[in-house]
Design a protein around this nucleic acid. Structure first.
Lengths: 247, 247
DNA sequence: CGAGCGGTTGAGGCATGTCAAGAGTTGTGG
DNA sequence: CCACAACTCTTGACATGCCTCAACCGCTCG
């Protein structure tokens, strides 16, 4: 059911790092290991939260839907979990989850999860820290949506990912532009125009390649803020294996 | 330091309801009870999170700031807590807190809080539930911002608060319109115009009074959705004394 | 090859913000 | 108690940001 190499990768997540070994094994033996084809809707928003999902390979898009419209809220990459809060509250999923490519997922029954953090204090503390970090991350997103216009959001996205890529002057976009547009709360057409206009502000786009041509100028435009752009994921003492869904 | 009637009100919060009495007393004796005048900035975003705040009387506005702009993220009313996540992660506050009126606040040292959920398993579970609920609440807010236009946000706000007011056909706005505009992500001028235009859709505004003139029509416009409007605060098994900052 | 899809570009329209002015209200000090 | 200042709210005129629709290009994949 579970691949032999699956356990250690999950065990290294902050969420499971500190719990008792017996309890971890307990959770894992109750879990399922599944592979989904690209473009499959694994979760529909509103469904009861039966399983905590862990992305092992591939990537998953989380989308919000309403009145026939939809928008990308996050993209989850290996190795990390998603929809923890719904599992904990035994409440309906707030977002639909859809694979972007062939994706391997480990599913932990929500009921096991809920009983576990009552039995294992170390696990409870880990859940607290994970939820607090996710909460703060979404607050940052909301601030970005309300305080910045679309051009500023695009610019800050490009600069932030350049930093994530190690400060490299050039890197590749990890998602399609239409998905990025939805994530940033704009239309693909508008993103396309905005990207072109940003050439005057120190960043050039060539296909999926992003080239920072004038970092100083771009930084001046973006006005990066740790309380929005959250490169204090480190300041939040979150190491690699970030708990926070990003795109 | 603490008023004699303060303890029981705090004790009734979901967050503190289930913990051991000795531990609760422990937290309370380490706390401060303070009164702030109207319009005072109690917390500036970016400050280190030293205290969990509990609003006992009055009301507090949480605002996000960036590049000289600011917007209202929430209004906290008695009796409820705010900035729990920052305290838990020992990280900077993401929002500025400012009193809207004369306000009484109980402050619990964040360090006591962090040591407490390691000692008291019931408290740890309560923190988990509180954080998960807050997290889901902000996700709903983000969905609303990205999926609805400003007119739809105004209409849904008016309808939701009518329901909160017990389904009454008429109720009073609890905040100034300029604050409401900021909370909904629009300008005061635009809110004013939108409110007037909504008279054609079943809701009339007279000063601070909201009058639902055609609930069916308004509901049809709003298309209420439990996964955004979160009247499943009940479905989230959150009773009265909601943990979630609202306006 | 041709269909489908992502991306780009242009034209036009609607939504929303900005600026300005005035009415009404509240709070304050003389 | 009144006069004034400060503030909210509203309304109008105008500018602009963003979306919609449509066309076209280039790529991928049956």
């Amino acid at each position: 059911m579970m691949r032999p190499d699956t356990d250690p990768q999950i065990r290294h997540l902050h969420l499971f790092r500190d719990m008792a070994q017996a309890n971890f094994v307990n959770l894992m033996t109750a879990s399922y290991d599944q592979i989904f084809p690209p473009g499959l809707e694994m979760i529909r928003q509103g469904d009861p939260a039966d399983f905590l999902h862990i992305v092992m390979e591939g990537s998953v898009e989380l989308v919000g839907q309403w009145a026939g419209r939809e928008c990308t809220m996050a993209v989850v990459r290996p190795v990390s979990t998603f929809i923890l809060a719904a599992c904990i509250r035994d409440a309906p999923y707030l977002m639909t989850a859809r694979t972007l490519e062939r994706t391997r997922i480990v599913l932990i029954p929500a009921s096991d999860l809920r009983s576990m953090f009552r039995r294992d204090p170390e696990f409870a503390v880990a859940v607290i820290n994970e939820l607090a970090a996710c909460y703060r991350s979404v607050v940052r997103t909301a601030k970005s949506l309300k305080l910045r216009n679309s051009r500023e959001r695009v610019a800050s996205y490009l600069l932030r990912h350049s930093i994530i890529a190690g400060g490299a002057p050039s890197y590749m976009l990890g998602v399609e532009k239409r998905l990025l547009a939805s994530y940033l709360g704009m239309t693909p057409e508008n993103l396309s125009r905005t990207l072109k206009s940003l050439e005057a502000d120190g960043v050039k786009i060539d296909g999926a390649r992003v080239i920072i041509t004038d970092r100083t100028r771009l930084t001046a435009l973006v006005k990066p803020d740790a309380l929005i752009d959250g490169l204090d994921a480190a300041a939040d003492s979150i190491g690699p294996g970030l708990p926070v869904p990003q795109v």
